[in-house]
Structure formats: C-alpha cells, structure tokens
Simulated scan of single mutants.
Amino acid sequence: MTRCSYHTVGPADGQAVVLLHAIATDSNLWSAQVPVWATAFRLVCVDLPGHGGSPDIDADLDLDGYADCVLDVLDELHIDTASLVGLSLGGMVAQAFALKYPARVRSLVLAHTSARTVEVVKGIWSGRIARFEREGMAAQVMPTLERWFTRSFAEASPLTLAWLSEQILRTTNKGYLSAIRAIQGLDHLDKLAAIEVPTLVVAGEEDSSVPPAAAAQIAERMANAKMLVLAGAAHLGNLERPVEFTEAVGAFLRQASR
C-alpha cells in the first residue's frame, strides 16, 4: 500500500508522466496542465505524504523517503519507466528519485527548484518553522503566496490565490514540517552529473526563491539538460504563465518519449 494518494488521467497505454507538486499544495496544482497533457500522456498525479488527500505521516521523511513513496506508486501501477515533472519541492523529490532509481526514469522536468540548500536558506526555513509553531498554518498563507507570485499577478488573481490558500490549509502540520526539513537537507548539486536522461530545467525570471542563476547551476551540472526561463513569472510559472509552461513542457515530454 502506498503512502501517497494519487490518480491517473489520460490513455492507459500512454507514456507515464508523474506530476510532483510544491510544498503545501497538492496534485491540483497541475489543474491548468492536466487536461492538455492528458491528451498525449498517462498522467500520474501524486499527493505527497501529508499533502492533499494523502495520509498524514508518523515521522519526517528525507528526500530519498519521498522518492520511495513515488516508487511505491509506480510499482502499484506496474509502471516500469516514467518521466517526472516536479515543481519546487516536487523537483527536489524528482532529483532524488532519478539519483536513486535511474533505470525507472525516461526524462525529467525540474521547475522552480534548486539542488542544494545553502546555510542562509536553511536559516530562513528555520525561521518559518518557528513562526509556524507560534502561529499555526493560517499565518503561513499570505507570506507563502507573496513569495510564489509577482505582485501584479497576485493583485489580478484573487480567486486563484484563494484556491491555493485552501491547498495550503489542507496540508497537515507534520506534512508541512517534514517537507521543510527535507528541503533543508537538500544537497544534490554535486551528484547531478550522474543523471543522464533528457532534462528540462524551468525557471521564473522574477523568482526570488530560486532565481534563474540558481536554476542554471542544475542545467550546467547535467550533460543532457536544457533550460527555459519564463519571462515575468515568479515561483509558480505553471500558473502565472500557464500556456507557455504547458506547451514548452509538453513539447519536451513528447520529444523525450520518442
């Protein structure tokens, strides 16, 4: 039995594509992409432990532990190989999976994510843990949304922000803290050269959490990677630039599946 809730969309005989979401969201984060990509691929939409419809967790998971959860899903579905599309935390999990289970990966999309958490950023996350322990999840909503989007998008998209607020609030306390600690432990940068599958690294031009220069470090360490920078987008480019993101990633997945 898997530790993740998941559902599949698209043709049963299509090339499998696993979608891995950001911290404090769930598989609904991909709502703009699923209807389009499902015309060509078998999408496996995963809720990471403690997020969305997945059960809460008993103990913290590191990134390898989250990768094991993804493996359980693929094994339950009898999927031998898949492409992984991960955003933010999901991109970190995708890296861990590709490093631990390289034979199970056809291609990777690493969006708005990093490969190493430096000490200053670890400290920032520790501050967020302290605020969470003092004030609870509700106090995390607005600061999180402010980091995720440009101001102009946020001001023009109140319904989208309300929708994401609900996802944040559905995240369990243990699921949130476990994800933060996994992010703090991220250190894949020097291992990325071992990943040989085609990889697309996606960055947001206005992403203060993972600036394009930080994302470029990932592409530079990988022999078979290329990079896409979404103009005017912050940390959730799949929502702020949905058509560009959907088409570019979809074209990459289609090419990589040939």
Rank of each mutant, 00 (worst) to 15 (best):
L29T: 09
A67W: 02
V141S: 05
Q255M: 09
I57Y: 12
A193N: 13
E155H: 11
L192A: 02
V229A: 05
L48M: 14
Q15I: 13
M142A: 15
W125L: 14
S27V: 02
F245W: 09
E220W: 02
E205Q: 14
D187A: 14
E244A: 15
A182M: 09
F132N: 03
L84Y: 05
A115T: 11
T150H: 09
T171H: 01
G232N: 10
R181V: 12
P35D: 08
E240G: 11
G10R: 01
N238E: 08
L110G: 03
P198Q: 08
S114H: 02
D75W: 04
R241F: 08
V18I: 12
K174W: 00
L253D: 04
A138D: 14
A231P: 06
R254Y: 11
G127T: 08
L43Q: 04
A193C: 09
R151G: 02
V85G: 05
A203L: 04
A59K: 13
K122P: 00
D68M: 07
P158V: 07
H112V: 02
I124K: 02
I195G: 07
A24L: 13
G91E: 01
R104A: 10
G127W: 05
A219V: 05
E240P: 07
P102N: 10
H7D: 14
D62V: 05
L48H: 07
D64P: 00
T39P: 00
C45K: 10
V210W: 02
L253T: 03
Y66G: 04
G237P: 05
A234F: 07
F245I: 02
V18M: 11
N28W: 10
L228M: 15
I168Y: 01
A22Y: 00
H235A: 10
R258W: 06
A203I: 00
S27P: 01
S114Q: 13
T39K: 15
A251L: 13
A233D: 03
R147Q: 12
T246N: 14
A219L: 04
L74S: 11
V36K: 08
P198K: 10
L228P: 06
I168C: 05
D60N: 15
G127V: 05
S114W: 07
A231T: 15
W148H: 06
V249G: 03
K226M: 12
H188K: 10
A139M: 03
A24C: 15
I124T: 11
Q167F: 00
V197L: 05
